[in-house]
């Protein structure tokens, strides 16, 4: 097919992660990512892409490159110490029924 793309345009805008607060009182929640040239641009794009149906009242955008994440391969070592501390959960403690809700 007769299709050539100008290679000079193959320069990507940086990637941003988008977090949206769906309504007052709730936390911002990750909802996706997009490419934009700068933070202002990213906010406008996020509004157009992720809040077309009043899904949000506030948006955060964060450069994806700025996010530090735990290593998926380290999952057992990283999270395991929590699994043997069952006494951190309320259900660990047996309370007589007559006490009622506690």
């Amino acid at each position: 097919m007769s299709t050539t793309t100008s290679t000079s345009a193959l320069k990507e805008w940086p990637l941003w992660e988008v977090f949206v607060r769906s309504k007052q009182g709730l936390e911002h929640k990750h909802c996706g990512s997009l490419h934009a040239s700068d933070s202002e641009h990213a906010l406008q794009m996020a509004r157009d892409v992720y809040t077309r149906r009043q899904e949000g009242v506030s948006i955060w955008v964060v450069p994806s490159a700025s996010i530090s994440a735990s290593e998926p391969n380290d999952k057992p070592e990283f999270f395991d110490p929590a699994s043997d501390k069952v006494y951190r959960h309320p259900t660990f403690y047996v309370i007589p029924d007559e006490v009622g809700h506690m």
């Binding site: 793309t5 100008s6 000079s8 345009a9 320069k11 805008w13 040239s37 641009h41």
Partner: peptide, 17 residues
Amino acid sequence: VKAWNDGAWVREAALAH
């Protein structure tokens, strides 16, 4: 392809800005 090529200057200008 035409839309992509015609929009190249906008993408480049946004990045330059």
